[in-house]
Design a protein around this nucleic acid. Sequence first.
DNA 1: TTGACCCTAGGGGTTTTCCCTGATTTTTTA
DNA 2: TAAAAAATCAGGGAAAACCCCTAGGGTCAA
Lengths: 212, 212
Amino acid sequence: MINVLIADDHTILRHGLVSLLSRDENIRVVAEAADGVEAINKALELKPTVIVIDISMPELNGMEAVKRLNEQLPEAKVLVLTMHEEQEYVIHMVRAGASGYLLKDSASDELIDAVKALADGKTYFSQYAASVLASQYNKPAENWQDPYKNLTNREREVFHLIIEGKTTKDIARSLDISVKTAENHRGKVLDKLNVANAAELVRYAAKNHLLM
Amino acid sequence: MINVLIADDHTILRHGLVSLLSRDENIRVVAEAADGVEAINKALELKPTVIVIDISMPELNGMEAVKRLNEQLPEAKVLVLTMHEEQEYVIHMVRAGASGYLLKDSASDELIDAVKALADGKTYFSQYAASVLASQYNKPAENWQDPYKNLTNREREVFHLIIEGKTTKDIARSLDISVKTAENHRGKVLDKLNVANAAELVRYAAKNHLLM
DNA sequence: TTGACCCTAGGGGTTTTCCCTGATTTTTTA
DNA sequence: TAAAAAATCAGGGAAAACCCCTAGGGTCAA
C-alpha cells in the first residue's frame, strides 16, 4: 500500500487528484495540504511514501518545500505536479530533490504510473521534463559556436590547460613554449571568451560542458 | 514527409524497423545502413531528417557515429535506439549530440512518436533515459559530504563568492570584512578542499553540482 | 575556566595573473 | 605572390592571488 500526501492550494483540483488516486487499490491518500508549511508538517507527522506537490503554493512555495522535505524526510519521494512549463522549474525542482515531474495536462494514468514508480524507488519524468533535462547536455554543440569557436588551435590548447587548473608556468612547460608566450595566449583566451579570470573561465567551460 | 535513415547491424531487426516506420504515412525510410561508416556516408548523401541508430555497430560504433554526424550534418536529428540500459550510454550519447534515446523494448508507437518529435525539432527520451539524466542532478546532495561539509559558514560564503569569479577585494566588500580576512578565508577554503587555485575550486564546484 | 574553534585583522613575503606594447617567423588565405 | 592571421617571444608594471605567520575577541562545551 502506497501512502500519498497531496499538496495543492486549489481545492477542487486537489480533491480531483484524491479521487483519481484513490481509485487505484494500491494507493491510499493519507493527507492533503493547501500550502507548503502544512505539507511539511503533515509529511513529518504521517511520513507518506510519496508526496504529490504543486510548485505554486502560498506560505512556502513548492521549491522551498521540496528542499526542506528532502532534508527532513529524505525517504519520502516527491512528485512535482505542475502547469509550469518553464525550463528552470524542472531543473530547480530536480536539484531540490524531486524524483518526478509531471505536467497537469498529463493523462491521469500517467499520474498513477508516476506515483507507483516513485514508491518503487524509481523516478518519473514527463516527456517534456525529460527533454528539458536532456537539453542541458545538448546545448553545448550550438552554444560552442561563437566565442569558443573563435579561439585558435593554440588558444584552445591553452584554454583546456587553464581549466585543468594549470598555472601559466605549467602550461609553458606542457606546450614547450616560453612562459611569456603562454601568458599571451592566456590573455587572449580570457579576452575572447570575455571573462575576467581563470575562475570565470572554468565557469564558462562548465556551462558549455567543456569540462572533462 | 519525414525522411528517415536506419542504422543497425542486425538485418532482421532493421527490416522490422523499416516496415514499422513505413506504416506511418508521414514517414519514409530513405536508406538503411549496417555499420557506422555506411550510416555516415548515406546520411551525408541523402540528408535524412531523422537518423535512427543503434549503439553497437561494427566499423564505427554508434557513439562515434553520432559525434561525427553531429559535426558533419548538424541539421539531422539522431534517435538512439538501443538495448543498453547502462547509465553512461545515455549521457554519452546525449553529449555526443543525440536528440532522443529509446530502448528496444519500447512500444512501437513510441518509436513513431519519437521520430515525429525529432523531426519537429523536439527531443524524445524514454522514461528510463529521462531518469538517468535526472539522476545527474540528484546525486550532489550525497556527494557534498566530505570536504564541503567541513567548511564553516563563513568559509562557505566565501567559497560561493570565489566560484562566482569574485576577487578577494570583491568578497571583502560583499561581506563587509577586511581584504585580509577575506584572504584568510579564501586560503582556508582552498586548503580544506585541497585545491591549488580558484580554477580548481570551480572545477570542484562543478563536479559537485555546486555551481549555480 | 580552559581548550577548541571561529571570525576577525594585519605584517610581510613570493608567485601568478592580467594588461599593455612591440617584434619576428610561420602559416593561411585571398 | 602579397596580405592577413597565427604563433612565437619579450619586457614593464600593476593588481591579485597565494602563503606563512601572529593575535585579539567571541562562543561553546568539557
